[in-house]
Write a protein that binds this DNA or RNA. Sequence first.
DNA 1: TAAGACACTACACGCGTGTGTAGTCGGCCG
DNA 2: CGGCCGACTACACACGCGTGTAGTGTCTTA
Lengths: 228, 228
Amino acid sequence: MTGPEPEDLTARARIRDAALRHFGEHGFDRATIRGIAETAGVSSGLVRHHFGSKQGLREACDDFLLKAVRRLNDEARTHRPPDTNPVAASMAAIGPYRPYVARALAGGWAAPLFDEMVRMSEEWLAEADQRRPDPPFADLRARATVATAMGLSVMVLYQHVSRGLGVDLFTPEGAHLLAVTLLDVYSHPMLGPEEAASMRDALDKISHSSTQEGRGAPLRRFEENHDD
Amino acid sequence: MTGPEPEDLTARARIRDAALRHFGEHGFDRATIRGIAETAGVSSGLVRHHFGSKQGLREACDDFLLKAVRRLNDEARTHRPPDTNPVAASMAAIGPYRPYVARALAGGWAAPLFDEMVRMSEEWLAEADQRRPDPPFADLRARATVATAMGLSVMVLYQHVSRGLGVDLFTPEGAHLLAVTLLDVYSHPMLGPEEAASMRDALDKISHSSTQEGRGAPLRRFEENHDD
DNA sequence: TAAGACACTACACGCGTGTGTAGTCGGCCG
DNA sequence: CGGCCGACTACACACGCGTGTAGTGTCTTA
């Protein structure tokens, strides 16, 4: 599944692949159709011929990655080693397209891709819940969402994490160090039960005292546009 | 972060503020000097006069936020309620500049800002370590880095998390739901001790058997190069 | 073989952009 | 007062970009 697929020999696929790299490396706006075409070994007009516009090219990229993750999800469902963080697995599989995915997610695009990962996390969390004595504070969906975001953070902030660990995450040493670190973080709660309980009480108190206040005016000063 | 300061009445400060918003909303490339100037109520030439170039303007923005976070860090060190996630605190303080910070971090910029947050996390983690019975798998720096990335993930993936929770994070309801969810996640390990131990053994085995080559990371797939 | 569809190219246009330059206004110091 | 310096503006230029259009080769099919 990792190798180039039959269709990947076509010019259309080459263009899409080049676009994923250029968009990931330079960002959507800074990447140029001409540059993508050159990398793909075609003329710039052909890009437009196949994808209609720059935006169309981007949508094709999103589509391609979403299908890849979906396929990965399906085949992981059949034979998955338990206790494997699904987001980490996706991240690994994304491979060379990591910069594109990171930009897309951080820019607010690729919502279906994120949601797909949330679905995977839900399944994973549901299993973990069965071995958990106390009832969760929040519902499965909320926890899966946050867990997904956290799992993706290493990929999105890849450069910063690499710098912090002192080794590139995509080298074997870096991946190993990251795995060990993640293992520690995932197996040790950052808050003790008594601290959590007290903070939870405080939160509940706040929510009860001000359920009606400030409802009309959310703080968002700027609607976030979906562009780079 | 807090109200406008005295200096924020100058045209230079107004430009910087407008730039932070425009860069955050549209991204660096799509944002235009003319648009920023209009928002700031000045001519486009003045932007160049004060900041030299568009890139210079961006660097001034980075600088401003870094100093803001540093100041926040310092004053939090004096009187900080313990058990408060420092990254979460920074995130709240960033306020309206969240989109800018998210874009900067995801784009690989703002390294000093990330590193500053890692420093804060180190202090926080060091305290938590004192209450921890078993020795950590990885050193403080590595864990602080990963914890920082995870803490920032909610901010960087703000729109996706909002969508997943079903409510905007910057509404009181959203913030509360997020807090409760984070509380649950931070107070409950995702991996049990026995699972963690077994995975750790497996990791060690891998690292010892293949220090040199090949599948050093269980994490890599999709490694084909897409030439031709 | 004729003809049409498709992959693909070459080229030009128009627009928006960052940047450069010249010039005006206003306050501060000698 | 007079000169100067910084804040600030108006305007024009050159360039890169996405997009449009016309044209060429090639494969398929009736």
